[in-house]
């Protein structure tokens, strides 16, 4: 299972939501080391079940939303913070690219500013894709849809590559040489950089089409 098991600090019962016990209603102590995965009681791994993620966000919102959590001043402030953390964790983890960026950072990998590398010949290809976006916005209709679908497919392929990249990283033995770890980081970094371009292209296409139709 990808779920982390925890116990309530007040009653000792099993904790589904790391921030509040459903059995006794006690809020758990705020833990500054709790990352987004831990906030949603998930193990730190790339694959997440989107439906399960949705389910947890809704269930945890029920535990933590100030409307239901009670109005006592201390409780309310704690509930607001908890609900905000759940919302933020969901925003970061639901999208494959932002989840990959976040996980790589947690694992100590290079950031996008540290390592901007992309596959060979990629930047030239991006210039062509940029032209394709302009042409798709001009043409609209089925042509635009085809380009949109292609970008979506690139992003889906990126997600699959991230999944296998993180799996490879996790499979490294503890005594693996530093170079092996760095190579795995680099491969993930390159894939995330590549996806970033496609995300920008997809967004520009969407907004370009919107601009065009609203004028």
């Amino acid at each position: 299972m990808t779920t982390v098991s925890l116990a309530c600090s007040a009653c000792g019962g099993a904790l589904e939501n790391p921030q509040r016990c459903r059995a006794c209603g006690a809020f758990q102590p705020l833990d500054p080391r709790r990352d987004h995965f831990a906030t949603l009681a998930l193990r730190r791994r790339f694959e997440v079940d989107e439906a399960e993620l949705q389910r947890r966000v809704v269930a945890f919102a029920r535990d933590l939303h100030p409307d239901l959590a009670g109005a006592a001043p201390g409780v309310r402030a704690r509930a607001v913070l908890g609900a905000a953390q759940v919302n933020e964790a969901f925003a970061v983890l639901r999208d494959a690219h932002s989840r990959g960026e976040y996980l790589l950072k947690l694992l100590g990998g290079p950031s996008a500013t540290e390592d901007k590398s992309v596959p060979d010949g990629f930047l030239e290809a991006m210039l062509d894709e940029r032209d394709a976006v302009d042409a798709a916005i001009a043409a609209g209709g089925a042509a635009a849809e085809a380009v949109r679908a292609r970008f979506a497919a690139e992003l889906a392929a990126g997600e699959a590559a991230l999944a296998s990249g993180f799996a490879a990283l996790a499979a490294l033995p503890d005594d693996a040489p530093a170079s092996a770890r760095d190579a795995a980081f680099r491969a993930l970094r390159r894939e995330l950089n590549r996806m970033a371009y496609y995300r920008t292209l997809a967004r520009d296409l969407r907004e370009g089409l919107y601009d065009k139709e609203s004028t």
Partner: peptide
């Protein structure tokens, strides 16, 4: 820089 192309915002 390797990435300053027209495609980058």
């Amino acid at each position: 820089t390797a990435v300053a192309t027209a495609a980058v915002a």
